[in-house]
Design a protein around this nucleic acid. Structure first.
Length: 496
RNA sequence: GGCCCGUUGGAGAAGCGGCUUAACUCACCAGCCUUUCACGCUGGCAUGCACGGGUUCGAAUCCCGUACGGGUCACCA
C-alpha cells in the first residue's frame, strides 16, 4: 500500500451512486458482542452516527457475531444500552427492522451460503481441506525458509471435491492493484500479491469477518464505511469479495487509532485508562460530556469552542476534519470537559449525581440536608465527575491539619495573631453556626483588629485549613463545624 | 521480516505550497475582578513543525531517504 502524491480528502456522496441517482447515505456500526462497549467502539459508533445525522442518512447497528467462541451472552444488550445512554440511537437494528434484516449475522447464514456458492461456481473460491495443524506446519516451514510473506500455499486449489470437512478460501486474483480513495487517508493502494488466499467460510460453516462484512455492506446498501484504522489492511480483501460478486464498493474512511499517553494503542488490559463506557457511567460521568469528549478523539471542530452539544456536533460534523494521526486519550481533557457539564447542572442535579458515592462511603451518615447541600455547593464548580466528590471531601476533611511554608509565613505577619485570637473568641461565643453568621463574625473580627482584604481572609483561611487555596470561606467553615474550627485555630495561634 | 499508517509547544490539536510573525483547547504563569479563595475575564507561553537531502521565487505543507512510534499479516472481529 502506498500513498499517492495528492492527498485526497474529497467530499463524500460523489461516488455513492446508483444509476446516476445519489443514494441516501447509509452507514453502519458493526460490533461483535464479545464484551462491553469499549471507548474505541463507542467512538466508531459515534462518528457513524454523526455522519448519518449530518447527511440525513440512516444509521444501522449490525451485530457481527460470527465468532461463536467469543460471543458473550449479555454483550449485545449491554453495548446497545450504553449506546443509548450516550445518546446514540439508530434507525435499523435487531430491534428495529428497516427492510434490510436480519441484522444479526448468525441469522443470515443462508445468505452467505448462497454467495459463497456463487464464488465456488465461478471458480473464484475453492474448498480447502487443510487442518489447523497442517497450516501451522506450513507457516513454520515458510518462516524457517525465510519467506517474506506467509501466504497460504494454495495446495488445495484445484483439488477434487470430496466429502470431508472443509473451509472455503477466496482465490485472490493475480497481478491486481486495489486502490480506494479513503476519506481520511487519501488514496491507498494494495497489490494482490500482498494478500494470500483467505478463508471466507470456516469449517463450521460460519463466514469469516471479511466475507460477511463485505456481503452485508453491499446487501444493506451501505454507502460509507467509517471504522478504525486497524481495518485498513482488511479493505483490499473486502474489495475483492465485492468485485467478485459484482457489488458496488462503499466509500471508506479509516479513523486513527486511539492511543494512551504513552502512544500505545488502547488495549483492553491497559490499566492507565478507564476503557469501558459502563465504567464511566459508574464513576458518575455525564453522557453528554462523554459524547462531546469522544467526538474530539480524532476529530476537531472548525470553531473556537470545543464544548459542543450533540445537536451542535451534528450540525458541525465534517468528515474532512477527521485526523489521520493517532488520537491521544487525554484524561485531563476528559475531566475538564466533564467538569464543564457538571457546572451547567443545577444544584439538585449535582446532588443526585454525587449522593450515591457519598452514601456508599457513609459520609452522609449523621449529616443533615443542609450540610449535604453545602457540601455540594462548595465543590460543584471544581467537580470533574460524581465519584470525585469523595476524594474532594476527604482531601478537605481528612487531610491532617499542618502549617508550613508559605502559609505559615503568612500567619507570622503583624497583627495576625491578634486577629485569630479575636475571631476564635467570637466563634466560641456562638452556640450555632451557619455560613451567614460566620461571615458576620469575620467582618466583626476584621473591624476590631483593623484587618481587611487579603490580610483578613487569608489568615482565617490558613488558620482553619492550613491551605492558601480552597472553597468559599464561610461555606467551608460551616462544613467543618465549630469544634474543628476552634481546635485548628488554637493550634494555629500556638504555632505563630 | 513483508505490507501499510503516522511524527507540529508541557499536553490535545488546527494547518493541505505564499493570508503562519504556526489557530484553538487543556495545563502553567502574570494581571484584573472578588474585602479571601474559587469562578470569570485579559495577557504570556513553539525563532519552530522528528532528522537529512531535494523540488520551488517561496515548504510545517510536495518528493526521496533515515530514525522513532503504531497497525496488520488467523478457519478473531
Amino acid at each position: 500500500m502506498r500513498r499517492l502524491p495528492m492527498r485526497a480528502k474529497h467530499t463524500i456522496m460523489k461516488t455513492a451512486k446508483n444509476g446516476g441517482i445519489h443514494m441516501k447515505v447509509r452507514v453502519r456500526y458493526a460490533p461483535s458482542p464479545t464484551g462491553h462497549l469499549h471507548i474505541g467502539n463507542a467512538r466508531t459508533a459515534l462518528f457513524n452516527y454523526l455522519f448519518a445525522r449530518r447527511h440525513d442518512g440512516d444509521f444501522i447497528v449490525r451485530i457481527e457475531d460470527t465468532d461463536v467462541e467469543r460471543n458473550v451472552e449479555t454483550g449485545i444488550k449491554s453495548q446497545m444500552s450504553y449506546l443509548r445512554w450516550l445518546g446514540i440511537d439508530w434507525d435499523e437494528s435487531i430491534d428495529k427492522d428497516g427492510g434490510y434484516g436480519p441484522y444479526r449475522q448468525l441469522e443470515r447464514l443462508d445468505v452467505y451460503k448462497k454467495y459463497a456458492q456463487i464464488l465456488l461456481d465461478k471458480g473464484l473460491a475453492y474448498k480447502c481441506y487443510c487442518t489447523a495443524e497442517e497450516l501451522e506446519e506450513e507457516r513454520r516451514a515458510q518462516k524457517a525458509r525465510g519467506d517474506e510473506q506467509l501466504h497460504y500455499s494454495r495446495k488445495c486449489l484445484g483439488k477434487e471435491d470430496r466429502d470431508a470437512e472443509h473451509a472455503i478460501r477466496f482465490k485472490v486474483p493475480d497481478n491486481q492493484t486495489y486502490t480506494f480513495d479513503d476519506i481520511i487517508k487519501g488514496e491507498v493502494t494494495f497489490q494482490s500479491e500482498d494478500v494470500g488466499d483467505f478463508i471466507i467460510v470456516k469449517r463450521n460453516g460460519i463466514p469469516t469477518y471479511n466475507f460477511a462484512c463485505a456481503v452485508d455492506d453491499a446487501l444493506m446498501k451501505i454507502t460509507h464505511v467509517l471504522r478504525g484504522e486497524d481495518h485498513i489492511t482488511n479493505t483490499p480483501r473486502q474489495l475483492m469479495v465485492l468485485d467478485a460478486l459484482g457489488f458496488d464498493r462503499p466509500r471508506y474512511a479509516h479513523m486513527p487509532l486511539i492511543v494512551n499517553e504513552q502512544g500505545k494503542k488502547l488495549s483492553k488490559r491497559d490499566g492507565s485508562i478507564v476503557q469501558f463506557i459502563e465504567q464511566y457511567h459508574e464513576l458518575g460521568f455525564l453522557p453528554e460530556a462523554l459524547f462531546n469528549f469522544i467526538a474530539l478523539l480524532g476529530w476537531s471542530p472548525d470553531a473556537k469552542e470545543e464544548i459542543l452539544s450533540r445537536e451542535a456536533l451534528i450540525e458541525r460534523f465534517d468528515e474532512k476534519r477527521l485526523s489521520s494521526s493517532p488520537a491521544t486519550f487525554d484524561k485531563g481533557k476528559l475531566h475538564y470537559v466533564n467538569n464543564r457539564y457538571v457546572k451547567a447542572l443545577s444544584l439538585e442535579e449535582t446532588k443526585d449525581l454525587c449522593r450515591p458515592f457519598l452514601e456508599k462511603e457513609g459520609i452522609l451518615n449523621g449529616k443533615d440536608a443542609q450540610w449535604f447541600e453545602s457540601l455540594i455547593a462548595v465543590f460543584k464548580d471544581r467537580l470533574s465527575y460524581g465519584a470525585e466528590i469523595v476524594g474532594l471531601y476527604r482531601d478537605f476533611f481528612d487531610k491532617p491539619f499542618a502549617l508550613e511554608g508559605e502559609a505559615l509565613e503568612f500567619l507570622r505577619q503583624d497583627g495576625v495573631k491578634t486577629l485569630l485570637e479575636t475571631f476564635k473568641g467570637k466563634l466560641e461565643a456562638q452556640d450555632e453556626i451557619d455560613p451567614d453568621t460566620l461571615k458576620t463574625l469575620i467582618k466583626e473580627a476584621g473591624k476590631e483588629t483593623s484587618m481587611k482584604g487579603k490580610l483578613l481572609f487569608m489568615p482565617i483561611r490558613i488558620g482553619v485549613s492550613g491551605q492558601m487555596h480552597g472553597p468559599d470561606l464561610p461555606q467551608m467553615m460551616n462544613l467543618l463545624g465549630k469544634a474543628i474550627l476552634v481546635d485548628r485555630l488554637s493550634r494555629a495561634i500556638a504555632s505563630i
